[in-house]
């Protein structure tokens, strides 16, 4: 029977999907909150927050990975605390890969959502508030439906970025097959072995297929959402 991938390669694909899914899902609420704060609130330290969010985009991924290792490693300041009190370990686990992917993807997610929020006419929210709607209700019934395409775009961008994340991941959680070896790490590992080109090529094809599928699904979903909102 024709099986394009070995069990180990399937594990890398599955791990990549799992890492990207959780990286996106867990950071999305925070991403919306940060985007909303940056777009709508004027507070002290706003520029600093904006800079922090964008830092992973500008820093070499290796630096981000190293900083994660120093902070969230077993001996890291935050990592040791989390391990001791909550039993949460990031170093050399798939959760660490998800954390690295989430942080690397966060600037893209926030940017997309922030642009969507800034495009909402503030008068719509003001009108809602002068018609008796509290802050949370205004956000849930006016702002959120209007920025849904932006949230979707941000989430898909983040997912795609997470699927491709390599530098910070390999620095932070290494490249352990079955544990932390994501699709890009597996391609990298295959290329290090003499004669590994065919294996690398198979994984590259999988990578392209997943990316294409994600793109098509996102296009289709955003078209549906945009249609529902504009009411055309």
């Amino acid at each position: 029977m024709f099986d394009p991938l070995t069990a180990e390669e399937w594990r890398a694909v599955a791990l990549s999907l799992r890492v990207s899914f959780w990286a996106t899902a867990v950071s999305l609420p925070l991403g919306i909150l940060v985007a909303y704060a940056l777009a709508r609130w004027r507070f002290w330290g706003r520029e600093v927050l904006n800079g922090l969010v964008h830092l992973p985009l500008i820093l070499p991924p290796v630096v981000t990975g190293y900083l994660l290792l120093v902070t969230f490693g077993r001996r890291g300041s935050v990592g040791a605390y989390l391990d001791q009190w909550f039993g949460i370990v990031f170093a050399f686990r798939w959760t660490g890969a998800a954390l690295a992917a989430a942080i690397m993807a966060f600037p893209l997610m926030v940017r997309a959502i922030r642009l969507a929020i800034e495009a909402v006419d503030p008068r719509l929210e003001q009108a809602a508030s002068t018609l008796g709607a509290g802050r949370v209700w205004v956000f849930a019934t006016v702002t959120l439906p209007l920025i849904l395409p932006g949230i979707l775009a941000g989430a898909i961008l983040a997912f795609a970025k997470a699927m491709g994340e390599f530098g910070a991941t390999i620095t932070f959680v290494s490249n352990i097959p079955g544990q932390t070896q994501t699709l890009p790490s597996a391609i990298y590992a295959a290329l290090q072995v003499p004669g590994g080109e065919t294996q690398a090529l198979r994984l590259v094809l999988v990578s392209i297929t997943v990316a294409m599928a994600a793109l098509l699904v996102s296009e289709w979903v955003s078209r549906k959402v945009a249609k529902r909102i504009s009411g055309a």
């Binding site: 719509l124 003001q126 009108a127 002068t130 008796g132 509290g134 209700w137 504009s230």
Partner: peptide
């Protein structure tokens, strides 16, 4: 108080309707 707590209703010069609703 917030606008909602004041129990007022305002009509703006520009209509400001919610485009995603009927």
């Amino acid at each position: 108080d917030t606008p909602a707590q004041r129990d007022v209703a305002m009509v703006f010069q520009q209509y400001s309707l919610y485009p995603h609703l009927t």
